[in-house]
Structures are given as structure tokens and as C-alpha cells.
Design a protein around this nucleic acid. Structure first.
Lengths: 122, 122
DNA sequence: GTTTGCACTAACAAAAATGTTGGTACTTCC
DNA sequence: GGAAGTACCAACATTTTTGTTAGTGCAAAC
């Protein structure tokens, strides 16, 4: 068994890292840190996510053993999402990163430059 | 001015978070944690990155004040990249996350399912 | 004197991510 | 009776990301 190494393009850790650090993966983990949430609640909590992407990202994180899905077979569907033990560990790191960025926004030049949107090409 | 909040789709922190957690952004930050590196060295260190993406991702991180670029105007170009103070702080969190994932690979179902990457090499 | 390395960029092409629309099957609220 | 909410999925369209190729200008190694 070779040691996992994200710098190695073929290491499975690379794929997991990509799931976790994906656009919505990060936010899902942070949102679920507060406790169990239902699909719609999760969607309301995470600004800008579409149903499709939320469902897809949740499935990926579930496959990676970070998120647990619990479906109650009742008439209006009722599904709950929460973090597994592993998910909690990972989410804590992700949260730490997000907090770090939020807390240091003032030190970030591109933010101070007063550009609300994509300054990219015009 | 409201508080930064990554859950808010219009918060600038969201954009910065995306840069930092982008496919190559993560790896660049980790790679530079070890110290200054030149472009080509960085490229060799990060498996699978193309010149184009490395250059692009570096520029983004530079704009966000995480990475510093120092060009020496010598005949064969000599450019060095290293982390700013802010970059170090952020990189530390990113590294913690990556280490956490690497260390817990064995607990990840989708990895154990033998569905990706090159099997057999241990 | 031909190849190699350096640090890139521009143009184009392909692949992946993401969004949009419409639908399911039923219930509760107005 | 009509609208809204639940938890999604499938098909299609668009956008974004990423890769590929070629090229710069010069120097050192072969």
C-alpha cells in the first residue's frame, strides 16, 4: 500500500480532495456542521446552489462517506442529511479554512479593489 | 458593510474561497508551503498540471494576495513564487485538510471500492 | 548546430461543470 | 379548485474549466 499523496495525479486522495473542495462540496460540509438538514433547508441555506448541483454534490459526498442520507418513506418525501464521523472531521478543517478567509477578507487586494463581480474580460 | 459570509452567494469571500479551493489552487498553496519555488519546479511538483493552468491559477492567487511573484530580469527568465503572510495562514489550513483526507483514505468507501486510479500499485 | 530549458502567452478545441425546464405523486394551505 | 411544498431525476443548453499546440528569445549543454 503506497502512501497517499495529493501531489500524485493518480492518487485516489486527489479525487476525494476535489469532491470536498468542489464549489458546493465545501459549502455543504460547512452547512451540515450545524446539524441535520433536509434537502430544501440545505438549499435555502446555501446561496446560489441549484437543485441539480445540490443533489449531485450530496451524492458524491455520500459516496465518499462524509455525508449520510436518511430517507423516511412518508407521503410528502422526507429526507435528512447529516455528517458521518469522518465528515465531521473533514468539515471542521473546511470550516477553519472558510473562517480564515472570511476573517481576512480585508487583507485581500482583489476584494478591496472594489470589484463586486467578475472583472475578467470586458 | 455586512459581515463576510460564504453562504451568501454575493459575498466576495465566496470568490476567494473558490480560488483557494480550486483544483490547482489547493495544490499550489501546499507546494509553496515548503518554500520558494520556480515555475518549472512547481509544475514538476504538482502532478498533472498544465503550464496554462499553473500560470492562470498562480495569477489568481497572486491577485488575492496569497502568492508573491518575483521576477529576476535575467537572460534565461528566472521567476520565483512564494507565499505571503496571508498565504501561509491559508496554506496551513489547506494543508491540514489535505492531510486529514490523506490520513483517512482507508475510511473512504469510494476509494476502497477500487473504482479509480491505478490499482495494484502499492 | 541542434536540442533543451526557462517562463510564459495566444488561439483554438475538448471536456466538465453548471443551469434550465419540465415532470413525478401526493398533501396541506387558501 | 388552485397554488405551494417535498425531494428529487432526465433531457437539453449553456458556461466554465481545462487541455493542446505552437511560438517567443536567448543561453547553456551536447
Amino acid at each position: 500500500m503506497h502512501l497517499p499523496d495529493v501531489m500524485n495525479e493518480n492518487c485516489p486522495s486527489r479525487r476525494v480532495l476535489n469532491h470536498v473542495t468542489s464549489r458546493w462540496g465545501v459549502l455543504i460540509l460547512i452547512a451540515l456542521q450545524g446539524g441535520t438538514l433536509r434537502f430544501s433547508a440545505l438549499r435555502r441555506r446555501i446561496g446560489g446552489v441549484s437543485e441539480r448541483m445540490l443533489a449531485q454534490s450530496l451524492r458524491l459526498l455520500e459516496e465518499d462517506g462524509m455525508v449520510r442520507r436518511t430517507a423516511h418513506p412518508v407521503v410528502p418525501p422526507h429526507v435528512e442529511y447529516d455528517l458521518t464521523l469522518l465528515g465531521e472531521e473533514v468539515a471542521a478543517r473546511v470550516k477553519a479554512l472558510a473562517d480564515c478567509l472570511e476573517g481576512n477578507l480585508a487583507r485581500i487586494p482583489s476584494v478591496q479593489a472594489g470589484d463586486a463581480g467578475d472583472p475578467g474580460r470586458t
